[in-house]
Each structure stands twice: as structure tokens, then as C-alpha cells.
Amino acid sequence: MEPKFWDKNPNKIPQKNFLEGFHFKPLALNKTRKFYEFILVDTDFVAIKHYKDPKDPSNITHTTFQILKFLTPSLFGQNPNNTQKFSMLFDRIGYNYWDYVDAWTKTFWYQNKTNLHSWLIYFKRNILYKFPKWFLQWWDFCGPIEEILPTPAEEGFKVFKSMYDSQNTWILIDHQFFSSFLLSWIFSW
């Protein structure tokens, strides 16, 4: 990091490097974290609910993130660089497939004023997921790790591993386990 942008207080670094409300490099000023979150909600591929501190309604303490389904390039149905319009008036330009893919990471770049925000992430019941390949990178960044499993689930994971046919799929075993058994996890930074 350039010395001009560094600070011994890590909470001041975003203020020196990013616009207010951004915790990532803005490629376009209209593409805020809320823009990316709205893509996921507007497409009905994710359900997001923010929870406010009852003592301070301006402070979002945590958020639930329910994975409903995925937009694959074939479902997008056109050149991934072409734009789709939002169903409600939000941004006149709309979004393209690459914005949708970015939304899966940039949505999580939210931090509250106490730096204690967390996300509860989980899969929806009774869904057979078709994971796009880019989801592997998201899983590496936001997905859970085996060490968080409580003892009964850890035992189940060992059995699942022994029966999992990794030769005929590119889906990681932990990825398949969490989505098949609808296990939730907390993501926080």
C-alpha cells in the first residue's frame, strides 16, 4: 500500500482509499455495494434481510443471506456484456452478467459503524443447485470451513466424504455437503 493511503489505525484506511460506503475499488460511481445487492435481490436469486440494533436503528448488526438459485450464463440468455434492466426503478442502465458475478462478492463489503457486522449465509430447502464455475472462487472467499462443524455434523461429513465421488464432478466436497444438508454459517470481516 502506498504510504499516503496507509494508517496505523486500520479503520481509517477505507476512509483514505474509498468513497463513503465503498470498501472496494469503484469501477463506476453508480456501482455501489447497494447496486450489487439489488442485483441479487431483484433477480430473486438471493433473499437478503438486514437486522437493525433496537437501541440504534441506524446500525445494521447482522444480515441473513439465503441462496435461492444461481444465474448461469445460459440462463442470462444473451451476451454476458449486454445489460438487463431492473424490475424496479433503481439504476437506468441496468446490469450485465459480470455485474451479477461481482455482486456475489461486493455485496459482502458492508461494515457497520461498530465494525461488528456479520452475515448468516444458508441455502434454501428443496432446491437442486446448478453451481456455475465462478462460484468456486466465491466459496473460497465466503464459504465455510470444515473446522466450524459441530461434532455430529463433523461425523456426518466424514461419512459423506467416504461416499463422495469427486472424480465425476468439479464441485468441492464441502461445497456439496453444505448445500445438500442446508448448513448455515456466519461470515464476518
Rank of each mutant, 00 (worst) to 15 (best):
S179H: 02
I121Q: 00
I13V: 15
I93P: 00
Q84N: 13
S87W: 10
P10L: 12
E20R: 07
K85P: 02
G21C: 07
N9T: 03
G143M: 05
C142P: 00
W6K: 12
N96Y: 04
K124V: 02
K133T: 12
S188L: 09
W134L: 08
I148K: 05
I121M: 01
D102M: 12
L120Y: 04
K34C: 15
L29G: 06
F123R: 02
R125L: 12
D42K: 06
I13E: 10
M163V: 09
Y110C: 01
L75S: 14
I121K: 00
E155Y: 13
L19D: 12
W119Q: 01
E2P: 08
T43L: 13
F187S: 00
F18A: 01
K69T: 10
K4H: 11
K49E: 00
V101Y: 05
E37H: 00
Q167R: 12
L40W: 01
P150L: 11
L75A: 11
K16W: 12
L183I: 13
N168I: 04
K52C: 10
F135R: 00
K69D: 13
E2K: 12
N96I: 08
L149A: 09
F135Y: 09
F86T: 10
N79F: 04
Y129V: 03
K124W: 03
M1F: 10
N112C: 06
L68S: 09
Y51W: 09
G143Q: 03
I171L: 06
